[in-house]
Design a protein around this nucleic acid. Structure first.
Lengths: 241, 241
DNA sequence: ACGCCCTTGTGAACATTTGCACAAAGTCGC
DNA sequence: GCGACTTTGTGCAAATGTTCACAAGGGCGT
């Protein structure tokens, strides 16, 4: 393999784990801005975001060197740099597919707009639902998808039932959508190059149930209780480390 | 450090990454049961769940040896074993705190019951909201929390606004809740031993935005497009590491 | 101008997770 | 019964992620 590009210093190729935490830092910075705080140390920001300061500094180091040694980070500048790294310097148009309970709730949620996204279209497969008004928008048929992607929509949200999720995903991908947020309780298969993230309430609860069960079992056998995900205590119980 | 406990074969201490995927396998198995499939290979199940078959087999190996070489897994038996590992052999009662739009949507969602959870109480801080009926339940004041935990509720869902999230978390922890699912767009700090998982729509979208941005940048510089999270192509481009 | 003190940015050790490849182990046809 | 075939379970290596610990820098008081 030849050298290839050189990766302009930092800026390109932030590790996945770090990317997944950047939104949390952004939110913490917003909270601080609201409190009138102009400068933070990695330690303070780490507490607010719920991570360790070492992890925070390592994560930020992937975007560049925006702190001042001995002082900390300028809140508004760091906010800008993280926004830029995430690609939030402009709003991203989003289409939501599936106007059941969940889809309606999402459409009216409003939390998107604040964070750099705008819902520009709501779609549903059912002719009964098409034409209904939800919030400020009118539900449109699936056939408008190509027109949407043609005008720059690249992120799609699947709020359809599980059995329809794969069909919706296929339609989205077929129309040129490159990133999908899937709320349906099922996995969807997409070609390489298409990003999918899943949000599933039941799965999250089941993961919590596992830890609760462990706690019960530990209590029964007299062992110390399970630790938090964040802290390093759990699962290493009694191990030297 | 001395030997410690010995970890009864498998059964105890399943890696976090594996635990996080078990709900997906469970769901895939349910789908297959519904289709009348009685036996699956790791390859088939892996496709349905959206993971690689090697990963699937490794994950399952942590719970024990429930497959038959040359044949595959018995769908219903494997389903049972995963349920057991996750602690889903009985229903877990859940309390939802915060009856705004999101809280109401969650309370009426119904997806919990199917998956081994039952919403047994809805709470809100606002006296105006207390007493209202949401679905089959009546909203109660925060003061009933200790009574709930006393009767066995150990999982709490935070559906309150961000600025109230930490107070709600403190109240939950104070009452004895051991696991929290946080829908508020903020991190909450809890003592060691309390599990917290966060679900945040805006964060997920921001992560997708990052990948979309990379796609655009790659296209501009003439490089090949970004790969899927699963594939290992992206991010290793040209870096020595 | 100087030196002290504080916090960043990062190299290196450690831990976890993923992927590969194959021996072990079981079924099925004959 | 037996051999061919299939698929599991796992040892090992590579990749990824986390933590530690400290040198490098920069501000601030004097």
């Amino acid at each position: 393999m030849p050298p290839v590009s050189v990766e302009s210093a930092a800026e390109r190729g932030i590790p996945d784990a770090a990317v997944a935490r950047l939104p949390g830092y952004l939110r913490a910075l917003d909270t601080m801005t609201a409190s009138g705080i102009a400068s933070v140390s990695s330690e303070e920001l780490a507490v607010e975001a719920g991570v360790s300061s070492a992890k925070l500094r390592k994560d930020l180091s992937h975007l560049g060197s925006y702190g001042v040694r001995g002082v900390g980070y300028d809140v508004s500048h760091l906010r800008y740099e993280i926004s830029r790294a995430l690609g939030l310097t402009h709003d991203w148009p989003v289409v939501i597919v599936g106007m059941g309970n969940l889809g309606r709730a999402l459409a009216q949620y409003g939390g998107f707009e604040q964070q750099g996204f705008s819902v520009v279209a709501l779609l549903d497969h059912d002719p009964e639902v098409v034409g209904q008004r939800v919030g400020d928008l009118v539900v449109q048929p699936m056939t408008v998808l190509p027109a949407l992607t043609g005008s720059g929509v690249v992120i799609g949200v699947i709020a359809a039932p599980a059995q329809a999720a794969q069909d919706v995903a296929d339609a989205l991908v077929g129309a040129g959508i490159g990133s999908i947020l899937n709320f349906a309780p099922s996995a969807v298969n997409v070609p390489d190059g298409v990003q999918v993230r899943r949000v599933d309430l039941a799965s999250e609860l089941q993961i919590l149930a596992y830890h609760e069960q462990r706690r019960v079992e530990s209590a029964e056998s007299g062992a110390p209780a399970d630790g938090t995900a964040a802290s390093a205590s759990a699962r290493t119980v009694g191990v030297a480390r």
